[in-house]
Amino acid sequence: MESLKILYLYPDILELYGDYGNIQVLKYRLEKRNFICTIDRYSIGDDAPNFQDYDIVFAGGGADNEQSILATDLIKYKENIKLAVKSGTFFLLICGAYQLFGKYYKDSNGNTTPGLEIFPYYTASNPDKKKRCIGNIVIEATLNEKKTKVIGFENHGGQTFDVFSPFGNVLCGNGNKFGDKYEGFFLDNVIATYLHGPLLSKNPDVADYIIKYCLERKYNREFKLQDLNDEFENLCRKQLLDKFLNK
């Protein structure tokens, strides 16, 4: 039976907005189709993981204080992560993790935390701590040449610049910066986004894109994913798209 292996980074630290939901959705959609899904967790103090051993690497967002504690830990794996990105391991990076994979993060006090420099963007926080991009957001992404609306919630003070390949166009909400046209960062094997928490729960297209990509990469053949009962997801999407886009 085919299987996928997920590495969940810092589950005890980067878990502010129900981020684990994304892993649960991936596991759910894999197991419903009779694929095996294994989840390994890595956090500070654990044995070093080999990122290339995994099909999917997931990291979420955390509180500012805790995020700075782990930044120094993660940087130890910079070269290993670079190799994994190059070899096609899928990276799903939310909020804080999105920022950490860039060049640097400058906080609202002007202090700069170096990033992993895997991707060429950088993030600077708004000097006014109270000004954050907070609210429901809908973007339009193109996955496998198919357009799909991605629904989520953003809550970030950081403004991300120099994104050459965004995840999607903003239909409502802010995106990478206040009032931006674009949201997130995208490569075939990378989704980095401010749409926090259980992003995949309302966006089965995105979840299935990741699953299909990873299966095809691992087994080097085409996969046609079996349809699942997405009744709740479809009802939810219809309700929310009506609410957010027609206000």
Binding site: E15, Y17, G18, Y20, G21, Q24, I134, F153, P198
Partner: peptide, 9 residues
Amino acid sequence: GKDVSWIWD
């Protein structure tokens, strides 16, 4: 709170 992400916790 407009954000219902917390239900995943």
